[in-house]
Every structure is written in structure tokens, then in C-alpha cells.
Simulated assay, not measured.
Amino acid sequence: MRLLFLAVLRPHTGNAVTAERVRDHLEAAGHICILKDAFDFESSSEIANLITTENFGAALALHLYRGGRLLQGHGIPFGVIFGGTDLNEDVNQREKNNVMGKILEEARFAVAFTESMKEMAQAQWVDPVFTREVKAKVKRSAGVRLLGEMPREDLHAAVKNCFAVVNSSVSEGMSAAILEAMDLEVPVLARNIPGNSAVVKHEVTGLLFSDPQEFVQLAKRLVSDPALEREMVANGREYVRRHHSWQAERVTYQRLVRRLEGSWED
């Protein structure tokens, strides 16, 4: 595949060295990788002409703002590599921050060289549109706090100190948060959608609500009925033990992988 690779190529800089190294990796895999200096282009229209003229099939940008913004809107699949300055400096400028969020919405993938860079990016953008909506709604909601990501041990400690865990998702496959709450013996209130009702049996392993009014009603009931709370907590823990055991899951995946290796004795 012919790849366009945009990066800031000032001699002897970290970006230039990284770009050359990445290009070598790609060309070793048989791709044709054309490395261009992002500073040589003043507009995305110039990139559009280049893509058409050179018949590029995909593109890559080193530095989310300097390189990535030139690849937007061309219909060519592209990925981005965080450069450092984009996460350390550009995020602090509102206009650049907004642009970078939109770039990530269009990019097929994003690469961070360290775990701390990844965490910084996730804190700024996991899903930009949804994040903006959530933050705006939280600001309008009295008594609601928005917490960022935290290590699993800290999250579990926080959950165990809560009266209940609420899942208000409008779409779920299988909610790990619900299963974790059950395993930690914390009551669950969940929106009544297929993914949640598949693991929460109403008034047995948790409570299911369909609208805000029903949520308030059920929450008040949970607060005033310790016996119901104890019963649901016990049933929830038993449900997780029977149907979502870590040990059973491990055995199942190991057996399935053996099938991929050609062993069909199971």
C-alpha cells in the first residue's frame, strides 16, 4: 500500500527521528511510505491534491494537531501518533483542543508511546462528542460529580463505600460495572434495557427502572427496605459466582483456543 506519512521534520528533532523509525518499520512490511514535512503544506487542499496525484491509499500523521488536521475530510483512512507537544501544550489552547478532538473522531487509530500519554489523551478525549455532552449535563445537575478514570483497586474501594451502583446506559452488551457491583455486594439499579435485564432480574439480583420517575421510586424503596437490599445483594453475588466465574471463564477460553490449534477432543 502507498502511505502518506505527515510529520514535523526539523533536522535532529525527536519527531524527525521517530518518523524515520516508523517509516522503516512500515517499509520493512512491504509498504511504500512517503514521508512529508507537515510544515510544507499551508492548507488541507494541498494535501487533497497530493493524495490524488500520488494515489495514496492511506495516511499517517505524527502529532495530532500539526499533522492530523491536514488529513481531515479527504475520505482517506488515517491514523495518528501523539507527538508530545500536542498532549503537553496544545491541549491547553481551546481551539486546538477542539480541533484535535474532531481529528480523533475521524482517525482509525491513535498511538501513544507511554501509558501516561495514553491516560492524558483518554482524559481529554475517550469519546469527544459524548464527553462534551456529559460534562455539560453534569454542570447543570446539582449534587452530581464527574470523576475521571481511576485504578481498578481504587474504583472497587469507592464502589464498596457506596449505597448502590446505578447503570443508566441506553445501550449495553454486558455491563462489567453491574457484575463488579454484584461481586462487591453492592445493590444495583439499572435501566431496563436488554443488556442490563439479561444480568439483572428485577427485585431478585437488582432493580430495573424505565424512566427517571421509576428510578426515584425504586431508589426510595431500596433505602427504606433493608431486607430487600440484603436479599438482592446475596442473590447478586451468587449469580456472579455461578454464571460469571473468573475460573470458569479461564477454562472456557483455554478450551476454545485448543480448538484453534486443531485439538477437537472436547
Rank of each mutant, 00 (worst) to 15 (best):
F209C: 00
R241G: 13
T18Q: 11
F113M: 11
E265D: 11
V251G: 00
T114P: 05
L256R: 14
K135V: 14
A190G: 14
N49P: 00
A164K: 02
N161Y: 01
V170Y: 11
S175F: 01
V233A: 07
V233G: 06
K220P: 03
V91C: 09
R140H: 12
R140M: 15
A158M: 08
M150D: 02
V233R: 12
R23Y: 01
F5T: 03
F209I: 00
Q72Y: 03
L4C: 00
P128W: 08
F82I: 12
A59P: 06
G173L: 05
R21M: 10
V17D: 13
S263H: 15
P226T: 08
Q93W: 11
L70D: 07
A142W: 05
A16R: 08
E229A: 10
R10A: 13
Q254D: 11
K135F: 09
N167F: 09
E27G: 06
G262F: 08
N196G: 02
L189Q: 01
A112N: 06
L189W: 00
A158S: 03
F113R: 15
P187W: 01
G75R: 01
A234R: 14
A176F: 13
K96E: 09
A121I: 07
V144Q: 05
V186Q: 04
E119K: 13
L3N: 05
L228R: 03
S44H: 08
A158W: 05
E249V: 12
A7W: 06
M150Q: 11
V165L: 14
P226V: 07
L64Y: 03
A136D: 07
L60V: 13
P128H: 11
A59V: 04
A227G: 00
H243E: 10
T205W: 02
G262K: 10
E149G: 15
M150N: 04
G79R: 11
N55V: 05
A38I: 04
A110Y: 02
T18C: 05
P11N: 01
E89G: 06
N97L: 14
V204R: 10
E54T: 03
L71H: 01
N167H: 07
A164P: 03
L208V: 01
N196A: 04
N161G: 08
P212G: 01
H156F: 14
K102I: 04
E265S: 09
F5C: 00
Q124C: 08
K36L: 02
S224Y: 02
I76V: 14
T131M: 14
K135I: 13
S169H: 01
F215A: 01
L218D: 03
S175A: 08
G30A: 05
R69F: 12
L222F: 09
M120T: 13
D211V: 08
I103V: 15
H25Q: 15
A181L: 05
A158T: 07
S43R: 11
K160G: 01
H25V: 12
L60K: 07
T114L: 05
V138W: 10
Q72G: 09
F5Q: 02
L155K: 12
V188E: 03
G83E: 03
T252A: 15
K36I: 00
K139T: 14
N196C: 08
Q72T: 10
A61K: 06
F78I: 04
R66C: 10
R221Q: 11
K102A: 12
N196P: 01
F215E: 02
R66W: 05
G206A: 02
